[in-house]
Design a protein around this nucleic acid. Structure first.
Lengths: 230, 230
DNA sequence: TATTATTGTTACAAAATGAGACAATAATGA
DNA sequence: TCATTATTGTCTCATTTTGTAACAATAATA
């Protein structure tokens, strides 16, 4: 068999979470002239670590290296095999799918990751096939291709389960943040209101928060401390 | 490209947990004339659901269908690519690897599952390349090929995390079991002693246990109830 | 019929959590 | 200057959950 750049039949998709306006958002791509929306994804180089392939793709789309990334599921049902979707996307970009990219019409098993990033650090960049790469609130997603909506759903569920266990909430905020900001992140992820005092006590009890200087907001009230995770 | 039976570069491995003699055990295969031990695994048919491929392989090895199965991680580093291992196994079985099975020398990404089964229901069966398929205590495994020891370790950690959250302990026991048996399963998985009364209270509080008739053991003491999960 | 080992339940202490009160600010504005 | 306002950090107390031990109820045995 000839050398090939990527492993056949294998892809990854990434659910990139950001936090802005007290909402949990994710990056969604739109393909040129199709009205089709999808998770940002990519392929794995024939001699490339799976994890590194995902980091590479994320770096290209967000400009960020060194981001919090976690693999959560591989999706491999036959039900997700719909070659006509990829054919539509390729045709809309002026390609002849069967002639130019026959391997993209194959069946794919995708390994899904979620990433947590500081919203303000990111300038989303689309790829060659895509029109745009934009933030959408998790609660107001457009219709996505294939099983991507199910992938997002599982990502959110996994993130919820890992929130307390791995204390990952801070990865959606700048290095230093107030207790209220952290609480809003938790509330957005869990989709529920939390009690301020109980939350503060629980967070401090983890022993993972370092307290820094106060943040003076210019508002007429006590200034909150800034915290960071250790 | 010619039709092929299996997706290239993709495999699955299964960590099959059983419980016997108050120990947590897993199924390990030994390859003919090599002294090499490995997790039971297999390949995914070109038109086969990933999950069903794993169930098919498990059914062949355990004789069981309808078992508790959970995917927990895909392993895809380049460090796990050691074609000489598979070459050794094929040669020991009288094959010429390069000529007969060149694709088995390729790089593989493996998707790992763990299964929980009732030890007594299983008669392990090796496959064509294997000598034996036997139970080994998790704490006394032989040296395994490639990254299979890391796969087992991650399986155990995942099982521990899921134990309370998904109440999966009962899948390692017969349909009906005593509270003491269930406690022993928990103790084996968590590798720690539990307090009898606290455990009993917590289990009953889940509301997922149904109480059946008593089990008379012939011993000189009160007979325990049998329970099943709903 | 007393003894033994084990089980299911209860009782009480200790710890964790829920819910509110309260004092301590930063700015504002009379 | 000094009361006012909004928010923060902490404390208090009630409630719930958990840790620990005691106790009563068995099945078989001697």
């Amino acid at each position: 068999m000839a050398e090939r750049a990527f492993l056949p039949h294998l892809a990854y998709d990434s659910v990139v979470f950001g936090f802005s306006g007290d909402e949990l958002k994710i990056l969604i791509m739109e393909y040129h002239n199709t009205g089709l929306f999808a998770l940002p994804g990519g392929f794995v180089g024939s001699n490339e670590d799976l994890d590194l392939a995902v980091r590479r793709g994320l770096a290209e789309r967000t400009g960020l290296s060194d981001i919090y990334l976690e693999q959560f599921h591989a999706f491999g049902s036959m039900a997700r095999y719909k070659p006509e979707v990829m054919a539509t996307i390729l045709q809309a970009n002026g390609h002849n799918p069967e002639r130019d990219f026959p391997w993209m019409l194959d069946r794919f098993i995708t390994i899904a990751y979620y990433a947590l990033i500081n919203y303000k650090d990111v300038v989303p960049k689309p790829d060659a096939l895509s029109d745009s790469c934009r933030w959408y609130p998790v609660k107001e997603l457009p219709k996505l291709i294939l099983d991507h909506e199910g992938i997002v759903e599982k990502a959110v569920l996994t993130l919820r389960e890992n929130l307390d266990r791995k204390l990952v909430g801070g990865n959606l905020l700048p290095q230093r943040f107030t207790m209220k900001e952290l609480q809003h992140v938790y509330e957005a992820i869990l989709d529920t209101k939390l009690r301020r005092t109980t939350f503060q006590r629980a967070m401090l009890a983890t022993g993972r928060l370092k307290r820094h200087d106060k943040q003076y907001s210019g508002k007429a009230h006590k200034a909150p401390y800034l915290y960071s995770f250790t």
